[in-house]
Amino acid sequence: MSLRIDERIAEHRAALSPQERKAAATLLEHLDDLATYRAAELANLAGVSKATMSRLFRHLGYADFDEVREHLRALRTAGEPRRVDGTPDLAAHAAQEAEAILRALHQPQLAQAVELVATARRVTVVGWRNSHPVALHLRQQLAHARGDVRLAPLPGQVVGEELADLGAGDVVVVIGFRRRPSGFPTFLAEAAGTGAAVVLLGDPTAMPHAAQATVWLECPVQGALAFDSYAAAMSLVGALADGVLSRSGRAAQERVSGISRTYERLREVE
Protein backbone atom coordinates (compact mmCIF):
# COMPACT_ATOMS: atom_id res chain seq x y z
CA MET A 1 0.00 0.00 0.00
CA SER A 2 1.39 3.44 -0.94
CA LEU A 3 2.08 5.96 1.79
CA ARG A 4 -0.70 8.35 2.76
CA ILE A 5 -0.15 12.04 2.16
CA ASP A 6 0.58 12.79 5.82
CA GLU A 7 3.14 9.96 5.88
CA ARG A 8 4.76 11.32 2.72
CA ILE A 9 5.03 14.76 4.28
CA ALA A 10 6.73 13.28 7.34
CA GLU A 11 9.14 11.27 5.17
CA HIS A 12 10.16 14.19 2.95
CA ARG A 13 9.97 17.03 5.46
CA ALA A 14 13.74 17.37 5.95
CA ALA A 15 14.26 17.85 2.20
CA LEU A 16 11.55 20.51 1.79
CA SER A 17 12.33 24.21 1.44
CA PRO A 18 11.00 26.60 4.12
CA GLN A 19 8.16 27.66 1.81
CA GLU A 20 7.30 24.06 1.00
CA ARG A 21 7.25 23.23 4.71
CA LYS A 22 4.85 26.11 5.21
CA ALA A 23 2.64 24.72 2.45
CA ALA A 24 2.90 21.20 3.92
CA ALA A 25 1.79 22.48 7.33
CA THR A 26 -1.34 23.90 5.67
CA LEU A 27 -2.07 20.54 4.03
CA LEU A 28 -1.84 18.83 7.40
CA GLU A 29 -4.08 21.43 9.03
CA HIS A 30 -6.76 20.78 6.41
CA LEU A 31 -6.23 17.04 5.99
CA ASP A 32 -9.81 16.13 6.93
CA ASP A 33 -11.32 18.25 4.15
CA LEU A 34 -8.32 18.72 1.90
CA ALA A 35 -10.05 17.64 -1.29
CA THR A 36 -12.75 20.28 -0.88
CA TYR A 37 -10.20 22.97 -1.80
CA ARG A 38 -8.57 23.91 -5.08
CA ALA A 39 -4.79 24.05 -5.33
CA ALA A 40 -4.88 27.85 -5.65
CA GLU A 41 -6.99 28.15 -2.49
CA LEU A 42 -4.52 26.00 -0.56
CA ALA A 43 -1.66 28.20 -1.76
CA ASN A 44 -3.51 31.30 -0.55
CA LEU A 45 -4.22 29.69 2.82
CA ALA A 46 -0.53 28.82 3.19
CA GLY A 47 0.66 32.22 2.02
CA VAL A 48 2.82 30.68 -0.71
CA SER A 49 2.78 30.82 -4.48
CA LYS A 50 0.92 28.32 -6.65
CA ALA A 51 4.30 27.28 -8.02
CA THR A 52 5.50 26.41 -4.50
CA MET A 53 2.38 24.33 -3.88
CA SER A 54 2.91 22.51 -7.18
CA ARG A 55 6.56 21.80 -6.30
CA LEU A 56 5.44 20.38 -2.96
CA PHE A 57 3.02 17.99 -4.66
CA ARG A 58 5.80 16.78 -6.95
CA HIS A 59 8.23 16.33 -4.03
CA LEU A 60 5.58 14.20 -2.32
CA GLY A 61 5.29 11.99 -5.40
CA TYR A 62 2.11 13.41 -6.94
CA ALA A 63 1.90 14.76 -10.47
CA ASP A 64 -0.55 17.47 -9.41
CA PHE A 65 -3.42 18.18 -7.02
CA ASP A 66 -5.81 16.01 -9.07
CA GLU A 67 -3.64 13.04 -8.15
CA VAL A 68 -3.85 14.09 -4.48
CA ARG A 69 -7.65 14.04 -4.80
CA GLU A 70 -7.53 10.54 -6.26
CA HIS A 71 -5.31 9.46 -3.39
CA LEU A 72 -7.88 10.78 -0.88
CA ARG A 73 -10.72 9.08 -2.74
CA ALA A 74 -8.81 5.81 -2.58
CA LEU A 75 -8.50 6.21 1.20
CA ARG A 76 -12.26 6.82 1.42
CA THR A 77 -12.98 3.74 -0.65
CA ALA A 78 -10.87 1.73 1.80
CA GLY A 79 -13.09 2.98 4.63
CA GLU A 80 -11.03 5.84 6.02
CA PRO A 81 -13.30 8.80 6.94
CA ARG A 82 -12.57 11.53 4.41
CA ARG A 83 -14.62 14.31 2.90
CA VAL A 84 -13.72 14.36 -0.78
CA ASP A 85 -16.51 16.28 -2.49
CA GLY A 86 -17.08 19.41 -0.41
CA THR A 87 -20.16 20.06 1.70
CA PRO A 88 -22.54 17.14 1.12
CA ASP A 89 -26.03 17.57 -0.28
CA LEU A 90 -28.09 15.93 2.48
CA ALA A 91 -31.13 15.49 0.24
CA ALA A 92 -28.97 13.66 -2.29
CA HIS A 93 -27.46 11.65 0.56
CA ALA A 94 -30.93 10.58 1.72
CA ALA A 95 -31.86 9.56 -1.83
CA GLN A 96 -28.64 7.55 -2.13
CA GLU A 97 -29.43 5.84 1.20
CA ALA A 98 -32.89 4.87 -0.06
CA GLU A 99 -31.38 3.40 -3.22
CA ALA A 100 -28.81 1.46 -1.18
CA ILE A 101 -31.55 0.01 1.03
CA LEU A 102 -33.54 -1.13 -2.00
CA ARG A 103 -30.47 -2.79 -3.55
CA ALA A 104 -29.71 -4.57 -0.29
CA LEU A 105 -33.25 -5.84 0.18
CA HIS A 106 -33.88 -6.95 -3.40
CA GLN A 107 -31.37 -9.79 -3.40
CA PRO A 108 -32.65 -13.26 -4.31
CA GLN A 109 -30.06 -14.75 -1.94
CA LEU A 110 -31.92 -13.22 1.02
CA ALA A 111 -34.59 -15.94 0.80
CA GLN A 112 -31.91 -18.64 1.01
CA ALA A 113 -30.36 -16.95 4.04
CA VAL A 114 -33.77 -16.81 5.74
CA GLU A 115 -34.31 -20.53 5.15
CA LEU A 116 -30.89 -21.46 6.49
CA VAL A 117 -31.21 -19.33 9.65
CA ALA A 118 -34.81 -20.37 10.35
CA THR A 119 -34.11 -24.09 10.13
CA ALA A 120 -30.65 -24.23 11.71
CA ARG A 121 -30.00 -26.15 14.90
CA ARG A 122 -27.91 -23.25 16.24
CA VAL A 123 -27.10 -19.77 14.89
CA THR A 124 -23.90 -17.89 15.73
CA VAL A 125 -23.72 -14.23 14.68
CA VAL A 126 -20.19 -12.81 14.38
CA GLY A 127 -19.00 -9.26 13.85
CA TRP A 128 -15.93 -7.22 14.77
CA ARG A 129 -15.35 -3.46 14.99
CA ASN A 130 -17.90 -1.50 12.95
CA SER A 131 -19.66 -4.75 12.05
CA HIS A 132 -20.31 -5.59 15.71
CA PRO A 133 -23.33 -3.25 16.22
CA VAL A 134 -25.00 -4.75 13.15
CA ALA A 135 -24.29 -8.26 14.45
CA LEU A 136 -25.63 -7.31 17.88
CA HIS A 137 -28.84 -5.93 16.35
CA LEU A 138 -29.35 -9.07 14.26
CA ARG A 139 -28.78 -11.35 17.24
CA GLN A 140 -31.28 -9.39 19.35
CA GLN A 141 -33.96 -9.69 16.68
CA LEU A 142 -33.30 -13.33 15.88
CA ALA A 143 -33.48 -14.23 19.58
CA HIS A 144 -37.16 -13.26 19.48
CA ALA A 145 -37.84 -15.39 16.40
CA ARG A 146 -36.00 -18.58 17.41
CA GLY A 147 -33.90 -20.17 20.14
CA ASP A 148 -30.16 -20.81 20.45
CA VAL A 149 -28.82 -17.66 18.80
CA ARG A 150 -25.35 -16.67 19.98
CA LEU A 151 -23.22 -13.56 19.52
CA ALA A 152 -19.46 -13.58 19.08
CA PRO A 153 -17.06 -12.29 20.04
CA LEU A 154 -18.34 -11.23 23.44
CA PRO A 155 -16.46 -8.36 25.15
CA GLY A 156 -13.01 -9.51 26.17
CA GLN A 157 -13.38 -12.83 24.39
CA VAL A 158 -12.15 -14.46 21.18
CA VAL A 159 -14.13 -16.72 18.87
CA GLY A 160 -12.17 -19.98 18.86
CA GLU A 161 -14.36 -21.61 21.46
CA GLU A 162 -17.49 -20.52 19.60
CA LEU A 163 -16.52 -22.77 16.69
CA ALA A 164 -15.80 -25.87 18.75
CA ASP A 165 -19.39 -27.18 18.87
CA LEU A 166 -20.48 -26.21 15.36
CA GLY A 167 -21.24 -28.73 12.66
CA ALA A 168 -23.63 -29.66 9.91
CA GLY A 169 -27.06 -28.17 10.56
CA ASP A 170 -25.66 -25.02 12.20
CA VAL A 171 -25.34 -21.56 10.65
CA VAL A 172 -22.73 -18.87 11.19
CA VAL A 173 -23.83 -15.39 10.09
CA VAL A 174 -20.68 -13.30 9.61
CA ILE A 175 -20.97 -9.51 9.32
CA GLY A 176 -17.88 -8.23 7.53
CA PHE A 177 -17.81 -4.58 6.53
CA ARG A 178 -14.62 -2.92 5.36
CA ARG A 179 -11.64 -2.36 7.63
CA ARG A 180 -12.10 -5.91 8.82
CA PRO A 181 -9.55 -7.47 11.20
CA SER A 182 -6.59 -9.11 9.48
CA GLY A 183 -7.65 -12.61 10.56
CA PHE A 184 -11.04 -12.34 8.87
CA PRO A 185 -10.41 -14.77 5.97
CA THR A 186 -8.85 -17.30 8.33
CA PHE A 187 -11.94 -17.19 10.53
CA LEU A 188 -14.22 -17.69 7.51
CA ALA A 189 -12.22 -20.73 6.46
CA GLU A 190 -12.40 -22.16 9.98
CA ALA A 191 -16.16 -21.53 10.20
CA ALA A 192 -16.76 -23.21 6.84
CA GLY A 193 -14.52 -26.08 7.89
CA THR A 194 -16.84 -26.98 10.77
CA GLY A 195 -19.51 -28.09 8.30
CA ALA A 196 -21.84 -25.27 9.30
CA ALA A 197 -23.42 -23.10 6.64
CA VAL A 198 -21.90 -19.61 6.44
CA VAL A 199 -23.94 -16.53 5.58
CA LEU A 200 -21.59 -13.63 4.80
CA LEU A 201 -22.99 -10.10 4.84
CA GLY A 202 -20.64 -7.31 3.81
CA ASP A 203 -19.92 -4.37 1.53
CA PRO A 204 -18.44 -4.94 -1.97
CA THR A 205 -14.88 -5.06 -0.55
CA ALA A 206 -15.80 -8.38 1.11
CA MET A 207 -16.70 -10.01 -2.21
CA PRO A 208 -13.31 -11.79 -2.50
CA HIS A 209 -14.26 -13.67 0.68
CA ALA A 210 -17.63 -14.78 -0.72
CA ALA A 211 -16.17 -18.05 -2.03
CA GLN A 212 -15.90 -19.20 1.61
CA ALA A 213 -19.61 -18.59 2.22
CA THR A 214 -22.72 -20.61 1.53
CA VAL A 215 -24.68 -17.40 0.94
CA TRP A 216 -23.25 -13.96 0.07
CA LEU A 217 -25.34 -10.86 0.86
CA GLU A 218 -23.93 -7.59 -0.48
CA CYS A 219 -24.72 -4.34 1.28
CA PRO A 220 -23.27 -0.91 0.34
CA VAL A 221 -22.04 1.35 3.13
CA GLN A 222 -20.32 4.24 1.34
CA GLY A 223 -22.33 7.38 0.74
CA ALA A 224 -21.71 11.09 0.32
CA LEU A 225 -20.65 11.60 3.94
CA ALA A 226 -17.22 11.10 5.44
CA PHE A 227 -18.24 8.13 7.54
CA ASP A 228 -19.79 4.88 6.31
CA SER A 229 -23.53 4.51 6.71
CA TYR A 230 -25.14 1.34 8.02
CA ALA A 231 -28.74 2.26 7.23
CA ALA A 232 -28.92 -0.35 4.47
CA ALA A 233 -27.19 -2.92 6.68
CA MET A 234 -29.68 -2.43 9.51
CA SER A 235 -32.56 -2.70 7.04
CA LEU A 236 -31.11 -5.88 5.58
CA VAL A 237 -30.67 -7.64 8.93
CA GLY A 238 -34.16 -6.45 9.89
CA ALA A 239 -35.55 -8.08 6.75
CA LEU A 240 -33.56 -11.24 7.48
CA ALA A 241 -34.96 -11.47 11.02
CA ASP A 242 -38.48 -10.68 9.80
CA GLY A 243 -38.20 -13.48 7.26
CA VAL A 244 -37.10 -15.91 9.97
CA LEU A 245 -40.01 -14.84 12.18
CA SER A 246 -42.50 -15.44 9.33
CA ARG A 247 -40.87 -18.72 8.33
CA SER A 248 -41.00 -20.02 11.91
CA GLY A 249 -44.76 -19.41 12.14
CA ARG A 250 -46.75 -20.01 15.29
CA ALA A 251 -43.78 -21.25 17.32
CA ALA A 252 -42.04 -17.91 16.79
CA GLN A 253 -45.13 -15.92 17.74
CA GLU A 254 -45.50 -17.94 20.95
CA ARG A 255 -41.83 -17.29 21.70
CA VAL A 256 -42.30 -13.54 21.20
CA SER A 257 -45.32 -13.56 23.54
CA GLY A 258 -43.42 -15.54 26.14
CA ILE A 259 -40.50 -13.11 26.05
CA SER A 260 -42.87 -10.17 26.46
CA ARG A 261 -44.50 -11.79 29.48
CA THR A 262 -41.04 -12.30 31.01
CA TYR A 263 -40.26 -8.61 30.42
CA GLU A 264 -43.42 -7.73 32.34
CA ARG A 265 -42.67 -10.03 35.26
CA LEU A 266 -39.12 -8.73 35.56
CA ARG A 267 -40.18 -5.13 34.85
CA GLU A 268 -37.26 -4.85 32.47
CA VAL A 269 -38.86 -2.54 29.90
CA GLU A 270 -41.47 0.19 30.03
Rank of each mutant, 00 (worst) to 15 (best):
T124M: 11
A25K: 14
I175L: 15
S229T: 11
P181E: 12
P18D: 12
L225F: 07
A46S: 13
L166E: 01
A78G: 08
R146N: 00
Q212E: 14
S17E: 11
G202K: 05
A74R: 13
A35V: 09
V117S: 00
W216T: 06
E218D: 10
S17K: 10
R21C: 14
S54A: 13
L142S: 01
V48T: 12
A164M: 04
A40N: 13
A196V: 01
E190T: 04
A95V: 04
Y263A: 12
P204F: 11
A39V: 11
A43K: 05
G156R: 06
E11L: 15
Q109R: 14
L27W: 08
D85R: 14
A51M: 14
Q253N: 04
P108T: 13
G183V: 02
L163D: 01
L136M: 12
A24V: 09
E70S: 13
E115W: 02
A24I: 12
Y37P: 05
V171K: 01
E190Q: 14
G183P: 00
W216F: 15
A14E: 15
A196E: 01
V172T: 07
R247T: 09
H144N: 10
T205K: 09
A226Y: 01
G147V: 08
P133C: 08
A100H: 12
L201S: 03
V117P: 00
F177L: 03
P204E: 06
A232F: 04
L116T: 00
T52I: 12
H137A: 15
R122H: 14
T36H: 07
L116A: 00
N130M: 08
G47E: 06
M234A: 10
L151Y: 11
Q112G: 05
H137E: 11
A74E: 13
E97P: 03
A74N: 10
T186G: 14
T186L: 13
Q96K: 12
L151E: 10
T205H: 07
S248I: 02
Q140V: 10
R178Y: 03
A24M: 11
A10P: 04
G61A: 09
L225V: 10
A206Q: 08
D242C: 08
R139D: 01
P88Q: 09
G202R: 04
T87M: 12
F184M: 15
G183K: 02
A10F: 02
V215T: 02
R178K: 15
S182L: 13
L28H: 09
A23T: 03
A95P: 00
H71Y: 01
R150I: 00
Q107K: 12
G47L: 07
T194R: 08
L200G: 01
D6L: 11
L138W: 05
L60V: 07
R265Q: 14
R4E: 12
A120N: 01
L31Q: 05
G156M: 07
R129N: 09
R8T: 09
S131C: 07
Y230I: 07
L163R: 05
N44E: 15
